[in-house]
Design a binder for these strands. Structure first.
Length: 850
RNA sequence: GCCGGAGUGGCGGAACGGUUUACGCGGCAGUCUCAAACACUGCUGAGGGCAACCUCAUGUGGGUUCGAGUCCCACCUCCGGCACCA
């Protein structure tokens, strides 16, 4: 053992000090314009899009969790020679600015722009390679004027329309689209307030037109859960639309059509009553005089009920008969008509045929109102059994019973025949219904895009002429009070002359849902300053669809669906050729507060990355966020473990600058492990480095950053074993260090750039950024190893490991395995009944019987 | 209730049907130091044994397989989405 006094003096190297490295390189990259994308050249494009942030004022650690790996992907792709475009912008319209304005008596624009200023600084501190030249701020009139322009085109194309109906209404945000109402207790997705119903004239986009097309995901690669959620949200149901007619009565001649939608036309003979939604248009006309008072009271009560009461499934079914009958077109049977609020006006036709034997809700209603329950579908032996609950299960052998001429047919075949029969008589057809609704885009707020129409008492709704765009938001407005659009209080904004007749008219004071802003911003990134058109055809042609989009899954049926719809609308008015906005979408997980709740300023559980950056440096924070776990997983925030990542970077620093250094107290310092030869040591180093390169490359490709970091840690652990030995600083070592720096560069850009520049300087070479260096190639010869360790199992239990030459035959492997001492002991004289050599000789399992 | 996803050491998490527990944190011991911090080295799933070793462990119970964390069936728990959608 080496004596302390004999040890060479420990080399003093400069300490790893991120604070002195990071700002310097950030400034340098900026100066050189290293990340300004040449958009004119789309040949080798890689459009990498990350969801633009809302400028709440502070970038928290959650933003870093989203953006940091995205930046690593950008750098990785750039090292593969791709022309990477990674733009950034701000989702600048929205409620928080308006609230801040009300609370602090400041202008929403000033508040927003000040926040953006701060967030730009924080985003730069990440060392991310955003192309700031392409920045988009959606509250800028240069941006939102195009929202208005799109709206006018859609209006012309019949894709936008105005309609009065009962809508979801949030006391803070105003009206909401259907998907912006969340949970059983129906709260606003953004502010959490309870949502009410109001009858309002509102603007819609006709997105239901695309329902079927939206179910086709062949041109967009979504994570499975998002695809499933969108599919469920669109909710395609196949079935039949069947025409019942009203029966004549003392008060009514009858003969009116009552259409119902059903997914179970096979159960038509089991319909024993019919239910209309309280809002159904024929309720008033069909109600018998003696029932009128009760029915009107019921309808009024239903209207007054909150949505949550109305939709609660555990509530007892209610309803009243309207004193009229309907005639079942298939058998001429008269069945009573009820009005009941378990039938929704907005789905299907707002009316159902009720088949209590085969629908749980109808069953419950029938029991309560003592209505007949008739089984019409049965499995063999079940035909005569009492119906004590709705039979809704399906089995292959079920047949129709009590169904007239269709009795005895298999249920699915019978259903088809019943529809065909009705269709021939003009009383039915197969039909498809969707859950998806049109997109309600009107909002009663100030800080959004004004909807560019004018209400004229003479000409009605008049679109603002395109040459008058943008309809600008006034700088200040009176936000006070609630329930009234702030813009309505601005006389100057409100009063205009009608573009058609010139007479006095009023502007629309609703503004657009901010999800419109985010439905096309990546197109605008490509030509943010263009004045004559929203997008640049050549740029869009060359650069889109976006290659890769990264962001949170919380937008699965909102932003990620709206943007698909919007793209199809753009396509249909001839603006783009593509069907989908992006090729691939990846959802990273969400970082929660230490309390396990979603991180938000209002909860006060946000974590400020600035403190961590000043303590450990941006590289450590970046790497830690990647190392925590799989990127799509997220989880509660904790700093446990950040020291380990920081230590890793220090070790890289030490290996690169001080290969010969020895640690005081390390008895093995200066020696090769276990009598290894110099050649063997160098081969081992090369092998480890190239294996790591192979694995790390795969990890980057699959966005598996946690294991990518782990593998680099393993490699540095290997190198540490050779530090101070005779091979440290040699050719193999040097190559390994070079590979470590290149592999780590996308994740920890500053420290690798620093070490890279010192390497180049040390070798007398001219400086060139590591971030434009080419990604290294794996040397297959280095990866190959001469020997291999093969685990040996007896009856599936590990008993020994044998080391054999790599190219060995199975027979020879088997011979060596059977000769291994521990194997002999474990066999205890028994002869294996079977020898399994698995996976091309990766493992041997000996099967013995007792 | 329906549709997704997940349950692996004290913790975050690894693991083409093939050596479970990589990597990191934490813990223990040691070296260095006047001392501490840093750094470095080693150990660290549970139980048993002086030991070489043995037994048991991937939410629970079955199954398929030479071999199951991984595949199949039934269940439990947690997270996300939907919720009277006919």
């Amino acid at each position: 053992m080496t004596q302390t006094s004999d040890r060479p003096e420990r080399t003093r190297i400069e300490r790893y000090d991120p604070a002195s490295i990071e700002p310097r390189w950030q400034a340098r990259w900026d100066e050189l314009g290293l990340y300004r994308t040449n958009l004119a050249d789309a040949r080798n494009r890689y459009y990498l899009l990350t969801m633009y942030p809302y400028p709440s004022g502070d970038l928290h650690i959650g933003h870093w969790y989203i953006k940091t790996p995205t930046d690593a992907i950008a750098r990785y792709q750039r090292m593969h020679g791709r022309n990477v475009f990674l733009p950034i912008g701000f989702d600048a319209f929205g409620l928080p600015a308006e609230n801040a304005a009300i609370k602090n008596k400041i202008n929403p624009r000033d508040w927003t722009m000040k926040n953006i200023e701060n967030m730009r600084r924080q985003l730069r501190s990440m060392g991310a390679t955003f192309d700031w030249d392409s920045e988009v701020v959606t509250s800028d009139p240069d941006y939102y004027r195009w929202n208005q322009w799109f709206f006018l085109q859609f209006l012309k194309a019949g894709l936008a329309y105005r309609q009065k109906s009962a809508v979801d209404w949030c006391p803070n945000d105003g009206t909401l689209a259907r998907e912006q109402v969340e949970g059983v207790d129906r709260r606003c997705w953004r502010c959490g307030a309870k949502v009410e119903k109001r009858d309002l004239d509102q603007w819609y986009l006709r997105v239901t037109k695309y329902a079927d097309e939206l179910l086709d995901f062949s041109e967009i690669e979504f994570p499975d859960p998002v695809r499933v959620m969108q599919t469920n949200w669109i909710g395609r149901s196949e079935g039949g639309e069947i025409v019942f007619t009203t029966a004549p009565s003392a008060h009514h001649p009858g003969g009116e059509e009552l259409r119902v939608f059903t997914t179970r036309p096979d159960t038509l003979f089991g319909a024993t009553f019919m239910v209309l939604a309280p809002e159904h248009p024929l309720v008033g006309a069909l109600t018998a005089p003696e029932r009128r008072e009760e029915v009107e009271a019921y309808v009024a009560a239903a209207a007054a009920k909150t949505e949550i009461d109305r939709l609660s499934t555990d509530r007892d079914k209610t309803g009243v008969p309207i004193g009229a009958d309907a005639i079942n077109p298939v058998n001429g049977e008269r069945i009573p008509i009820f009005v009941a609020d378990y039938v929704l006006a907005g789905y299907g036709t707002g009316a159902i045929m009720a088949v209590p034997a085969h629908d749980e809700r109808d069953f419950e209603f029938a029991v309560r109102f003592e209505l007949p329950i008739r089984r019409v579908v049965a499995t063999p032996g079940q035909e005569g059994a009492a119906v004590d609950g709705a039979y809704v299960a399906h089995s292959a052998d079920e047949i129709l019973v009590n169904s007239g001429p269709f009795s005895g047919l298999a249920a699915d075949e019978g259903g088809r025949r019943i529809v065909a029969d009705l269709e021939a008589r003009g009383l039915g057809r197969s039909a498809v219904t969707y859950r998806l609704r049109d997109w309600l885009i009107s909002r009663q707020r100030y800080w959004g895009t004004p909807i560019p129409v004018i209400h004229c008492p003479v000409d009605g709704i008049v679109p603002v002429p395109e040459e008058d765009l943008p309809v600008r938001l006034p700088d200040t407005v009176d936000y006070g009070g609630s329930g009234v659009n702030p813009l309505t209080r601005d006389e100057q904004f409100l009063n205009v002359s009608c573009p058609v007749c010139g007479g006095p008219a009023k502007r629309e004071t609703d503004t657009m849902d901010t999800f419109i802003d985010s439905s096309w911003y990546w197109y605008r990134y490509l030509s943010p300053h263009r004045q004559d058109a929203p997008i640049d055809d050549d740029m869009v042609e060359g650069w889109t669809p976006v290659e890769q989009y990264t962001g949170g899954a919380e937008h699965a049926v909102m932003h990620l669906l709206y943007a698909r719809e919007w793209t199809k609308m753009m396509r249909d008015i001839g603006l783009v050729q593509q069907n989908e906005p992006w090729r691939r979408v990846f959802n990273q997980g969400q970082i929660l507060g230490t309390d396990g709740e979603r991180m938000s300023k209002s909860r006060g559980n946000t974590v400020d990355p600035d403190d961590l950056v000043s303590k450990y440096g941006a590289d450590t924070v970046r790497l830690f966020l990647m190392f925590m776990g799989p990127w799509d997983q997220g989880g509660p925030w904790t700093t446990t473990g950040i020291e380990g990542v920081h230590r890793f970077l220090r070790r890289v620093w030490t290996l690169a600058l001080d290969p010969a250094g020895m640690e005081p107290g390390d008895p093995d310092a200066g020696r090769l492990p276990a009598g290894q030869s110099r050649d063997a040591a160098e081969a081992a180093i090369r092998s480890a480095a190239h294996r790591t390169l192979r694995d790390v490359t795969e990890d980057y490709e699959g966005f598996r950053f946690n294991t990518m970091v782990a593998k680099l840690m393993e490699l540095t652990n290997v190198l540490y074993r050779y530090r101070g030995s005779e091979v440290a600083g040699g050719a193999a070592w040097d190559e390994a260090i070079r590979l470590v720096l290149l592999m780590l560069a996308p994740a920890a850009p500053h420290v690798t750039e620093e070490l890279w520049s010192r390497r180049l300087a040390g070798a007398g070479e001219a400086w060139s950024s590591i971030h434009v260096a080419r990604w290294p190639e794996v040397d297959p010869a280095a990866v190959a190893e001469a020997t291999r360790e093969v685990p040996v199992q007896v009856n599936g239990k590990l008993r020994d490991r044998v080391v054999v030459p790599t190219g060995i035959s199975d027979a020879e492997l088997e011979r060596q395995v059977l000769a291994a001492p521990k194997v002999v002991a474990a066999l205890a004289g028994r002869t294996p009944a079977r020898v399994v050599v698995a996976g091309g000789g990766r493992l041997v399992n000996l099967v013995v019987r007792d």
